[in-house]
Design a protein around this nucleic acid. Structure first.
Length: 876
RNA sequence: GCCCCUUUGGCGGAAUUGGUAGACGCGCCGCACUCAAAAUGCGGUUCCGAAAGGAGUUCCGGUUCGAGUCCGGAAGGGGGCACCA
């Protein structure tokens, strides 16, 4: 019987409509079934989905459909991370309103996502720029403000001169704005901050409990939080008059053990003492200015020399009143870490050593490797930073650095200088508070009012939302809300006097820090329905790109803690399982020979392969092209493949299946035309094999084979059910795919027999069962094809609402096992024996094997290792 | 500079976590169908060798009856942080 080729276009739209009409993916918050929350990082509505989205959402959908089939009440929502700069840029370039641009993009992308056949609960959809969403975000802001989790302070900020906005530290990459790429400048502004640093310790220790997160992400967060344990230590100034009355300088150190190696103190150019000195001394003032200027770009820092200015000040060594040490102002000391002052121990720190060599300061080794010789150990041009034993440190000599640390710390803690302890143990974190103010239009307005008399007045909850005005001019630099004619002029809610609205909006990372909670009750009148949110959360499986390993994930963890303190949820960690998927990459092509030519899109390239050498030509002009490296799909390199084109020519199932095959999901996947075609061949193969057999399977009851081919068919089917389930649980989609190929290959011959009408009833019955299983197993990955085949096989209902098949444990283990037999660790043959054969039986059988007898020459082996059901090793 | 990960056929990758290396896919080769091609089906495909056999998981060394897997060192590739005291 000739089968027609499977027509995905027609079938896919039909099933998408059927699913939608049956509303089977809309989730009931009151279901008695156990919950499972699977979430993919929601997209920014840039206008079109890309292959990275396809990969991300295909993975999430496999999990969602699988868990649903396993009897879970699955929450699988979708929304839009819709505030942000690109909308404003588009508005300036194309003269469209950011709102119109954003919502038009959302409509286009929603249509694209729907064409993928994702099992999403679209009834919960929202965009973060919806008034309803940011109203609730403003309510959260007010609660956080009342709880002391937000504060305002004057601070030096990273200013992006192109986007005309402030950037968080995390948004500055190599000294440039993460979006504009412009060199970031330093400015003083009054900004709002989240007190994320108050949570540093909790955010750090809780990482240990996130055992379903990639180790790599946990490590990156750990490094980002950057805990260090040390000592703050005050050094007495010998001549307070010279220091403008200051009596001591406080430094922060993690190495008090190296105190006897100290040869200078250095303070930041912005240190109060440096400012005092600068006010009196023009040379110091100009040096400090130089430091600040150089400090504006990190790029400059990389090459910047360590420079210092030796002041007239000297300080007394804490452990020896007769010992004084010079004080420098240095460009490498940061005012906002520790105390803005350090002591330098050149022998134990490379940077201090370079500085000491430059300014001819003493270099005394104080730690040496345990096996070195104290008399001859010297530091030349490399500092010794390792562990070992103390030397040249008087009473500390012979101790380990750890012991020396403890001794110095406890000695100086109990000593007083002035009327306070000279030193205190202190833990420091690199993590800074999160500045959330942005001087932009397209973001959630910060709901406060500035009154001359009352100060900062929160907008009363009853007055929310603070809505963005529609009529704005965006083609002027600066903050559009600030130069709106009327919007900011309000009366003070407290005293009724004229007052001014806060014109800053919130960082878009705020929007994405709690959307997962909002999905649990997306239309609720408060930010969350606490009972519902606490029941659904944490997200059981969160899937997205590694690029959010620090920013978004750390902010969300902070937000969940803050929402807990303000009663919106009852948990600390928002994401129990995290999976970071790899990128979709593609070969690049260029015209011309010298790799300076234009980039050419894959759709225009024709590849030919002769004797393993691939050459590329332009499909239209025939011009030879250079095949370049494989890189992340990007518009600039034109190596993008449009999901729409692929879905149009191969169907969504093929696109989804290919994205799940071949590469492990956490690694990059190379998009190749050949790979897609392979996936599509499999779609057609399943359709043809099942279709041709289906006529002879009509009315056949599914059953398990008991012997011969029928038993073999049932064995492979049941084994595959077990394996695919386990692989999906582990998100090892590539392995699940391989299992499916294997099963279909095994079923090809028996199904052909059925199609030819030559199969016995038992084989037909086993084939019907196996065919049903194949369909159920492919359903999470290729849901449309699965529905189509399910119907063709005469089944009722939808696969999408069918329970996952059970396997018979008796069928997944074979009665006989084939053990490899090694002689001295080299495989020399096999032994097929009863699975449950005991040690003695295996031993006897092994020794009876011809090649074993030949090798042992009648003598008993020196050793016989039998690993049950695994392997045998005969040692002679 | 510091920290982390990674290295398996022509290619993407499997290998029950110390037990038959190369599952599955791509590519390639052969055969069938066809006047022919495409499509499809069947078979082969780590390397050397006609075969018997031997070698083989980046390299060097170690532990073990047995190492892709564990330990020590080197090299290549990728990523994160980066004046953090």
């Amino acid at each position: 019987m000739a089968m027609e080729r499977y027509n995905p276009k027609q079938a896919e739209t039909r099933w998408q409509r059927i699913w939608e009409e049956a509303r089977i993916f809309e989730t009931d918050n009151d279901s008695p079934d156990p919950k499972y929350y699977v979430l993919e990082m929601f997209p920014y509505p840039s206008g079109r989905i890309h292959m990275g989205h396809v990969r991300n959402y295909a993975m999430g959908d496999v999990v969602a459909r699988y868990k649903r089939a396993r009897g879970f009440n699955v929450l699988h929502p979708m929304g839009w991370d819709a505030f942000g700069m690109p909308a404003e840029n588009a508005a300036i370039q194309n003269k469209v309103h950011p709102r119109d641009w954003t919502y038009a993009n959302i409509d286009a992308m929603r249509r694209q996502l729907k064409s993928m056949g994702l099992s999403l609960d679209w009834s919960r959809e929202f965009a973060t720029c919806d008034v309803e969403y940011y109203t609730q975000q403003q309510a959260l802001f007010l609660d956080f403000l009342a709880a002391g989790l937000i504060y305002r302070r004057n601070s030096k900020v990273n200013w992006d001169p192109v986007d005309m906005t402030v950037l968080a530290n995390e948004q500055v990459i190599d000294g440039r704005g993460w979006r504009s790429g412009a060199l970031v400048e330093q400015r003083e502004l009054t900004q709002w901050f989240f007190r994320i640093s108050d949570f540093a310790e909790d955010l750090l220790v809780s990482l240990d409990e996130l055992d379903q997160w990639p180790e790599k992400v946990r490590l990156m967060q750990k490094n980002w939080i950057g805990k260090s344990e040390g000592l703050t230590l005050r050094w007495e100034i010998t001549d307070p008059a010279e220091a403008g009355g200051a009596t001591d300088i406080e430094v922060y150190t993690t190495r008090p053990d190296t105190l006897y190696g100290a040869s200078f103190l250095a303070i930041a150019a912005d240190h109060p003492l440096a400012r005092d000195l600068a006010a009196k001394d023009p040379a110091i003032a100009s040096f400090c200015d130089q430091c600040r200027r150089a400090g504006t770009s990190l790029a400059a820092l990389e090459t910047a020399e360590k420079i210092g200015f030796r002041t007239a000040l000297e300080v007394v060594h804490p452990l020896d009143p007769a010992w004084t040490i010079p004080v420098f102002i240095a460009n490498f000391v940061l005012m906002d870490y520790g105390t803005g002052a350090i002591f330098g121990c050149p022998s134990g720190d490379q940077r201090d050593l370079d500085f000491a060599r430059k300014y001819n300061l003493p270099v005394t080794p104080v730690v040496m490797p345990a096996d070195a010789d104290a008399a001859s150990f010297v530091i030349t041009d490399t500092a010794y930073v390792g562990d070992g034993v103390m030397i040249n440190s008087r009473d500390l000599d012979g101790l380990s650095p750890d012991q020396a640390f403890a001794q110095v710390a406890s000695r100086l803690e109990t000593r007083t200088l002035g009327n306070a302890p000279q030193a205190a143990r202190k833990t420091n974190y690199r993590l800074r508070d999160w500045g959330l103010s942005r001087q932009r239009y397209w973001g959630a307005p910060i709901p406060v009012i500035h009154c001359e008399d009352c100060g900062v007045v929160p907008v009363p909850v009853a007055d929310l939302p603070v809505k963005l005005p529609d009529d704005v001019t965006l083609d002027r630099p600066g903050n559009p809300l600030d130069h709106h004619p009327t919007w900011k002029h309000v009366t003070c809610p407290n005293c009724g006097k004229d007052a001014r609205r806060e014109t800053d909006t919130m960082d878009t990372f705020v929007d994405s820090s709690w959307y997962f909670a909002r999905f649990t009750a997306p239309r609720h009148a408060t930010p969350t329905d606490p009972a519902v949110a606490s029941a659904w959360l944490p997200v059981d499986q969160y899937i997205g790109g590694i690029e959010h390993a620090i920013l978004h994930l750390l902010y969300s963890r902070f937000f969940t803690r803050a929402m807990r303190l303000t009663g919106h949820v009852d948990l600390k960690e928002p994401f129990r399982g995290l999976f970071t998927q790899g990128m979709v990459v593609h070969e690049t092509y260029r015209s011309g020979k010298d790799s300076k030519g234009e980039w050419i899109a894959p759709a225009e390239v024709e590849i030919t392969e002769i004797d393993g050498v691939r050459t590329a030509r332009h499909a239209r002009t025939g011009e030879p092209l250079v095949i370049g490296s494989i890189e992340k799909m990007s518009k600039s390199k034109k190596n993008v493949v449009d999901p729409d084109d692929i879905i149009d020519s191969y169907g969504a199932d093929t696109a989804r299946f290919f994205m799940l095959s071949d590469s492990p999901p956490d690694r990059d996947v190379i998009w190749t035309e050949a790979g897609v075609e392979g996936a599509h061949r499999f779609v057609q193969r399943i359709w043809r094999l099942l279709g041709e057999a289906s006529a002879n399977l009509e009315g056949v009851r599914a059953g398990t084979g008991t012997g011969g081919v029928a038993l073999a068919v049932s064995r492979s089917a049941h084994k595959t059910v077990k394996a695919v389930g386990e692989d999906i649980e582990k998100l090892a989609f590539n392995k699940a795919v391989a299992r499916l190929y294997e099963l279909v290959n095994t079923l090809a011959a028996p199904l052909s027999e059925v199609a030819a009408g030559k199969a016995e009833p038992e084989l037909r019955s086993a084939c019907k069962q196996a065919a049903d299983m194949v369909v159920q197993l492919i359903a999470p990955m290729m849901p449309h094809l699965a529905e189509e085949c399910w119907k063709m096989l005469g089944n009722t209902g939808m696969v999408a609402t069918t329970r996952w098949p059970d396997y018979d444990p008796g069928l997944v283990t074979d009665d006989q096992v084939t053990l490899p037999v090694q002689i001295n660790g080299k495989k020399r043959g096999d032994l097929t024996i009863d699975r449950n054969a005991d040690q003695a039986a295996v031993e006897a059988a092994v020794l009876a094997l011809d090649f074993v007898r030949a090798a042992t020459a009648g003598k008993p082996p020196r050793k016989l290792i039998i690993v049950p059901q695994r392997i045998v090793n005969v040692v002679i």
